[in-house]
Design a binder for these strands. Structure first.
Lengths: 207, 207, 207, 207
DNA sequence: CGTTAATCGAGACGGTACGTCCTGTCTTCGG
DNA sequence: CCGAAGACAGGACGTACCGTCTCGATTAACG
């Protein structure tokens, strides 16, 4: 996933010279996440600070990533961990479980860092690769759940899956992005969103 | 609205010396919007570039705004124009009208600039004032429409208005933020979102 | 003399904007001379160290001089002080006086710094301006003395003045450049060189 | 002469392992001389460029020389070739012959490189070894010629040999160092210097 | 003939300095 | 007093080398 990963099977030829230090990779990624968690934005964070924190020369960073954006993309991607797996029984429970993970993580700093990712994407062309590696796989899991729901009749047969994807993830993402209310419980919000989207908001006069 | 605007009627005392040039104000705001429309982010945009584009000295900018963030907030706020007014007949039509305006504008550059605003808010404390002056008024208009819907029975009597606000604006904002599909028509998306949220996505097996 | 000297009479138009600080000029030159006197060579000396020592930003240095070489040339030139004036009575005494000053100065650091100048000249094209501003004026003084000697008959009527210039200054400069023997007294060496060049080294068998 | 030359007779123990490549030695020295001849100074020349030009790893250079200065000293020393031998008949002709070689060589690049040597000596302590191996032997040859001249009566009996050494070599070295006039013929200059120093420059009024 | 050990090329390592650019403040001038 | 122009101290940028190190692959002489 890391752009600098020297896939050993890419070519049978292995690279000459001293191999790159895995410890440096870790230290750099860790330093980026630390600094992001300390509240620095992607632009405020300086490469020099990353190098100092990681105990690494600047060149060691620039050897691996062409620019700060690529570095941050990789750092964030590494933090997200594996793509979640759903239980596959209840469509509603699966959706709640998936949405609960948005903007939350076992690791404390994940929550702070995650919201740095989306903003950069739309305004920074270099960040578009991030979408592919991080966001899209998770969207695909949710898409699968929705299609299963259509097949089993839990969801409307004429459902626009992409639209439903937006209906569900939009509100949750917006909350984590803008943190209008940081006290909101992630699981509780997810439950309320799923239920409301399932049932609709129309009243008696509408039907 | 401009934080530095020396409202002449604010005090009976008139300012001594040369009054500030209104032309400079306009030129500066215009330059900021131009640069944002050209794709620069709030951080990439340098004050020096704004000054050069506006044909103005840097001091003239710093005399009016304490820092770059405040300048951008004002620039974006000035661009959004007046708070929209709804027709007040059909709740559904009013919601569609409001959501259609998100991420779109008569002015071509508005669409590009708007999505620069939200990302900055949650990570930049200086930007929180922006929320108050730009976003919240528009949320209030939609909140009013939703409450009217509850009263008239078009919406559920037990509706959580804030949640409904998120359900409706989340998907639309997310689309404009991430521009997953730039070809999406703004009005069409708004219509589909409103209808889906009204009716819900649950299928026959669910009921 | 300073390349950055904003000659006020150069144009009747005076520069707009804030004028350059004379204190910064002095502080920078002083820092360069200090560092050179501490034994750093022209290459070992870093611009960053100069800026730190002078309490000045790097940009303030680069605004005045295009590169390190030009800075050093100016620093050394400023140190040499005014072109010496001879008494004009005895040709021999004038030559001894002029040669004594080579590689020596009342200021302690001058001696250490001076020898940094010549080596750079021949190998660094940027340094050629230094020759014009520092060395050549002093050569001209000695040239005048020699021509006076030819007119008064103290020196041969067919004397090649340029060659004599080399005969006299070569040995003295070489001593100061290479410091083969740092204990050599500057005035004593000058006296012995002048007398030997006057009389020649040929023995009885030669005449 | 090479400081790193593992004299095989130095110890009876011969080194185990793969012996050092003589081709690498040559290639490195050659690359240094090439780069110097291309106008790079001792400091401008980077070890990395030497390694690249020589087709050699950097470690192969650092295994042989402790630093750049030592490398350059050896490179220049190797270029100077053997100490010249004089014919021993005419003192004047021998001196002219010796001085003509200063700053000139059959090899085209020698002339360019030689003047890089002296400047470094006096300001770079690491270079002092260079004086011993290159310059002093040549000075000794000239010293012998001068002492022979004193014995045979061609030169003054009370001649200060060291001073005479400076009188003769100073002007010639200075010319090659500063290249005030690159068109000067080396042999012609030597002749004029020797004759002038022999005869002195004093005129009729002096005697 | 296989072991051993120093060599080779290549290049990554932690650093330092480069020269450029931008920030937010200041200092001058003319209007 | 305002406006423009621009200098100021500071600091991050991305590049280039430094001198050291770590690789796999040679390349001899020794056992």
């Amino acid at each position: 996933m890391t752009s600098a990963s020297t896939a050993p099977a890419d070519q049978d030829r292995k690279a000459p010279g001293r191999p790159r230090s895995a410890r440096a990779d870790e230290a750099i990624i860790d330093a980026v996440l630390d600094l992001l968690a300390e509240g620095l934005s992607a632009d405020t964070m300086s490469i020099e600070a990353v190098a100092a924190r990681a105990g690494v020369g600047k060149a060691t960073i620039y050897r691996r990533w062409p620019n700060k954006d690529a570095l941050i993309v990789d750092a964030v991607a590494s933090m997200k961990g594996p793509v979640p797996v759903v239980r596959g029984e209840s469509v509603r429970d699966d959706l709640i479980a998936l949405l609960s993970r948005v903007g939350q993580s076992t690791d404390g700093r994940t929550a702070k860092v995650m919201s740095c990712l989306l903003p950069e994407i739309q305004r920074n062309t270099n960040m578009h690769g991030c979408y592919q590696s991080v966001i899209e796989p998770r969207r695909q899991v949710m898409r699968d759940v929705l299609e299963r729901g259509v097949r089993t009749g839990v969801l409307r047969p004429d459902l626009d899956v992409e639209l439903a994807l937006s209906l569900l993830s939009g509100p949750v993402l917006l909350q984590s992005l803008l943190q209008w209310n940081p006290a909101v419980d992630s699981r509780d919000l997810a439950t309320r969103v799923v239920d409301a989207v399932f049932a609709g908001i129309a009243g008696p006069a509408q039907r």
